[in-house]
């Protein structure tokens, strides 16, 4: 008898349980994505990156990433303008075909999508 009362009580408790509600969306400005990324190098040790951005007034800095392997994208540095020079992570060994990516960080600290490119 007591067992059934416990079971019924648990069922009543379960009936009262409700899940949480969806949080309101975080109100941020959609960050502009860098585009037309150009990667230039002469020695495959130092790479010059340049790109374009639609609304630079929203951007405080850019992040530079390098792809070390198909699954690892490593933050390699930052830039304040739309061009910068970076040293290869494999220096002093020259490596061709390195993939570099750039994102923009807005004044609200929201990072844009990445734009990637590689040196020929």
């Amino acid at each position: 008898m007591k067992t059934w009362l416990v079971i019924i009580g648990l069922l009543a408790l379960a009936a009262c349980s409700e899940h949480g509600d969806v949080l309101p969306p975080i109100d941020v400005i959609d960050p502009p994505t860098p585009d037309s990324l150009k990667v230039e190098t002469t020695d495959y040790l130092t790479f010059h990156l340049s790109w374009k951005i639609d609304d630079p007034s929203l951007v405080t800095q850019y992040r530079i990433y390098v792809r070390l392997d198909p699954e690892t994208l490593e933050l390699w540095g930052t830039a304040a303008a739309t061009d910068t020079s970076v040293l290869s992570p494999f220096a002093p060994v020259p490596v061709a075909g390195l993939v570099w990516c750039v994102s923009a960080i807005t004044i609200e600290n929201v990072e844009s999508q990445l734009t990637c490119g590689t040196s020929e």
């Binding site: 949080l23 975080i26 941020v28 959609d30 960050p31 994102s103 960080i105 609200e108 600290n109 929201v110 990072e111 844009s112 999508q113």
Partner: peptide, 17 residues
């Protein structure tokens, strides 16, 4: 999602993705 809001409030960077 709440942690992202806290990160932004604390001055950290969060990806739009």
């Amino acid at each position: 999602y709440a942690a992202y809001q806290e990160t932004l409030d604390d001055g950290g960077v969060v990806s739009i993705d």
